[in-house]
């Protein structure tokens, strides 16, 4: 992990919905090529912050820069510089593998030649040449997940947001997926991950934990475990996120 270049900078971010403060003075930086974990219980304010970082929602106040763009004035530019993948995959089930690749690459403005090259490159690196013309619906879950990730970075974005990416796949496939994430990070892509599963937090370079709209902790998994005298990230999380249900 390099710490010389900041790609996401958040200063005093506040987001209110009426009288409810969903994000309460968030402050953090994310570095280029970092795998950054963004954790929090349901309702802690993760999704609100994520939407702001993706340029889909405006903060109430505070300074937020994403890949050199101001979220107030350049939100459309942000969308070109980021990739996004959610647990629900965002692939079209009734389209084939190559159709999905072309579709997304086209949306991100790649030209015909680039799309052709990217498609070949992607199929071969995923070992999906034989499945190029199969429908997504007919692919096993693990392959879809890897394809969805590759498509999320098809336009070589500066940052890729992974919203609970690896639920439900077998442990071997899950590790192949994390290896792809590390590979992207090694190439300089910043990876911003939200997850409910604390064992996944252990894969991140640094982790932030949101509680009730605030960032309660932010550090490397090893430092957090040491600080809170815990043997796992699960213990760290449970110690911080006192129960706040019924909200």
């Amino acid at each position: 992990m390099k710490t010389d270049k900041i790609v996401i900078s958040v200063k005093n971010l506040i987001k209110d919905f009426g009288s409810f403060r969903a994000n309460d003075r968030l402050n953090f930086d994310v570095y280029e090529g970092e795998v950054f974990g963004f954790l929090g219980a349901n309702g802690a304010g993760k999704t609100t912050a994520l939407k702001i970082l993706c340029g889909l929602s405006r903060p109430t106040s505070g300074e937020v820069m994403v890949s050199g763009c101001n979220v107030y004035t350049q939100s459309n530019l942000i969308k070109q510089k980021i990739g996004y993948m959610s647990q629900k995959f965002t692939l079209y089930e009734d389209m084939t593998v190559t159709e999905n690749i072309s579709f997304y690459a086209g949306i991100y403005g790649l030209n015909f030649k680039q799309i052709k090259n990217k498609t070949m490159q992607l199929l071969s690196s995923l070992g999906l040449e034989g499945e190029a013309h199969k429908l997504i619906a007919d692919l096993p879950l693990g392959w879809r997940q890897k394809l969805a990730f590759s498509i999320a970075i098809v336009h070589d974005p500066a940052i890729v947001f992974l919203d609970e990416p690896t639920g439900g796949v077998d442990p071997v496939t899950r590790r192949q997926f994390w290896k792809m994430i590390y590979e992207a990070a090694a190439k300089g892509v910043t990876v911003f991950v939200t997850t409910h599963y604390m064992d996944e937090a252990e894969y991140c370079d640094r982790v932030s934990i949101m509680v009730d709209g605030r960032i309660a902790a932010l550090d490397t998994p090893a430092n957090l475990k040491e600080k809170y005298n815990a043997s796992s990230m699960n213990e760290v999380f449970l110690g911080l996120a006192r129960h706040t249900s019924n909200k």
Binding site: G40, E164, G168, H196, N234, L238, A241, H243, S245
Partner: peptide, 11 residues
């Protein structure tokens, strides 16, 4: 417990 946060899962 699929999709449920760590605190609720523990409960």
């Amino acid at each position: 417990t699929t999709g449920i946060d760590a605190v609720s899962r523990k409960e």
